[in-house]
Design a protein around this nucleic acid. Structure first.
Lengths: 363, 363
DNA sequence: GGCGGACCCGGAACCGGTTCCATCGTCAAC
DNA sequence: GTTGACGATGGAACCGGTTCCGGGTCCGCC
């Protein structure tokens, strides 16, 4: 393997000049620069990133911590991150770790603590105080996408507003018996993604009841009473059920929810499109027609949403991944990036996409 | 940041001894080893992998080249690879690249050519002669999973046998009008995964026709005549249609295929479960009942297969990923791995999983 | 008692780059 | 005709480990 000293010798210059010529830092006469470049390509020289990062402290490598890769949302985001990093000349080291467990401590204390990565992008994982401190002590920028917590740069949609909008869409269609299939942990972790979407659901229901009760006098239900019981005894029948955030999860929950004819809701707000797909299949299995017997709305605009004709609230994980990388690179003081980033505080964009799975309530 | 010299000073030994004590190589008195370890943890010392790999040439890092991460099969495999690498103390650098295009050349000539990775695991990508040579020149082991080509370690199921088995399952159920929804490229690249599965389909059809024509005299169709036309004019009506290997792809193709009542097949062999899901939805959309009006069999045993009650041929991508890592580590001469690997030449295991989507032909 | 070898340890070279500092030449400004 | 700024370059230190080599001690064995 040729080293830079070989290049230097062949070009008739010193190591220092060869380094300057190849990296572009410092002054080198154009003519000698060409001679060095020529010599390098002649012997197939490729710089050793290890040697370079040993002295510069930069590795041109960022770590990505992600709880799943095998779900549409996370996979899409990972692809967006990867493309953007590659384009900027960075490597991506993947840490796919369960939300908790021994593997997590190992990744943070051993893998990420070393000097292998310049920055860390953390997806849908709440970092502990200890984990944040450990990285900050080593001056590694952290960018969080989704999830909660503070102390770091954070990119996120407004999940509470999403829940509100989805539910309002159903309410405006005249539905009064509405179920929310929330992700697991919605009640236990009110600040997590499932919790925030459920809170938005409650907001919409409460507001509708308050509006309906105007002049009649306070039929507003105590909003603490969710869980999997009914909330609100007013004109709106609302129920929240937690389920696995997947298609089988939505299917199982859907069967339970829709199987009982008497209490069957006429509309379902699913916390994710995958849950919604499961619900749709459960409804079909039970002989219910969508949207005649049941309206369904999801969140994500999954690539299969059009196939299921699913009304949903779109977000763009690949784009979010791209943004996360740009924020991270900016924190590293890297390349002049194109247009200024949106206010880092502002939530990311979402968009209501109305398809055929929601319609006016008929009952 | 503390360096090893700080540890050495604190422990009252030389850098050399400190290095030996911490890495476990060479002889160090147990007592001084403890003193060094104690000193290291006291000041929070963490070795710099850059410095180490600079001199040893090993990086404890393997590169993974994968065309998609956002599909069940690849995502699952990636998770398997990641878990195994992490367990062995290795980092995983991800290169998610389109099957062709400028990004591909960049990854191979720039990213992988540097000394950042010890080995490369390539998934479902056929390497060019030039790419293989480039890596071999730098003495980096290559492990390929799926795909075709030679010159490297390769892990793969027997896709032709899978196609054969799936089709025989349908034939034994009495179906005589069978369609194969193949992946794109099945005819153009006969040695690719879609091509091999399609070949297995043809094998089964040909064999059935030969058996049916026994004594009657050679009704065997020319097996070259596939594409999207009918193959075989004997007792078996077989057709091959290429489609995107996804649920929407299967849905579209399914609508076209099943929409025409006269030529409608009674059974479909889908090249992947995701295609099968699309076909099932298309059938339902057309009012066909499964398995009464249509039998469907897929390949993969996707995590949603049970939900769709889909008969399929199971393979285990996560397990395959684990195996790929073990082969790679073995080629690196790493840790004594548990039991010897299966013959590297032998194809990986698959298993027929019969569920409710296939049944005897009724027509 | 002498000797070979295993064990333990320190000094120093080395991996392959980057960068500080010094030197030298050139040219514009005073 | 100096002075000084600046461009171009080389020498050498340095990043943080690993490993070679050599010296010293202790033990077993002839």
């Amino acid at each position: 393997m040729p080293a830079i000293s070989d290049v230097a010798r062949l070009a008739g210059v010193s190591k220092a000049t060869a380094s300057r010529a190849l990296s572009g830092r410092g002054h080198v006469a154009e003519q000698t620069r060409l001679r060095v470049v020529q010599a390098a390509s002649e012997i197939g020289y490729i710089a050793s990133p290890d040697a370079a990062s040993l002295v510069t402290g930069r590795t041109k490598n960022v770590g990505v911590v992600i709880p799943f890769v095998n779900s549409w949302f996370f996979g899409e985001m990972l692809e967006g991150i990867e493309r953007t990093l590659l384009g900027a000349g960075y490597d991506l080291t993947l840490y796919n770790l369960p939300v908790s467990g021994p593997a997590r401590a190992r990744v943070f204390d051993f893998f990420l603590a070393r000097k292998r990565v310049d920055a860390v992008i953390v997806i849908a994982v709440d970092l502990t105080e200890h984990e944040v401190r450990g990285l900050e002590r080593r001056e590694k920028p952290i960018v969080c996408v989704g999830g909660s917590g503070d102390a770091t740069a954070r990119l996120s949609i407004d999940d509470r507003a999403v829940g509100l909008l989805a539910t309002e869409h159903l309410l405006h269609l005249g539905h009064t018996r509405i179920a929310h299939l929330a992700g697991i942990g919605a009640t236990r972790h009110p600040s997590g993604v499932p919790g925030l979407r459920a809170a938005g659901f409650r907001d919409a229901v409460d507001a509708a009841e308050a509006a309906g009760a105007t002049g009649v006098g306070g039929g507003r239900s105590p909003s603490g009473a969710i869980g999997s019981g009914a909330i609100g005894s007013g004109p709106i029948e609302a129920i929240v059920v937690e389920t696995e955030m997947s298609m089988p999860g939505g299917f199982e929950a859907g069967l339970q929810l829709l199987g009982h004819p008497a209490h069957r809701p006429t509309a379902v707000f699913a916390a994710t499109d995958e849950i919604a797909f499961g619900v749709i299949r459960a409804a079909e299995r039970l002989g219910l027609s969508i949207p005649r017997d049941l309206s369904v709305i999801g969140v994500d605009d999954h690539e299969h949403a059009a196939l299921f004709d699913l009304t949903t609230i779109a977000q763009t994980p690949a784009e979010q991944g791209r943004l996360a990388v740009e924020v991270a690179l900016r924190m590293l003081g890297d390349a002049a990036l194109p247009d200024p980033l949106p206010d880092s505080g502002a939530p990311l964009a979402t968009r209501l996409v109305v398809r055929g799975s929601t319609a006016r309530a008929t009952a």
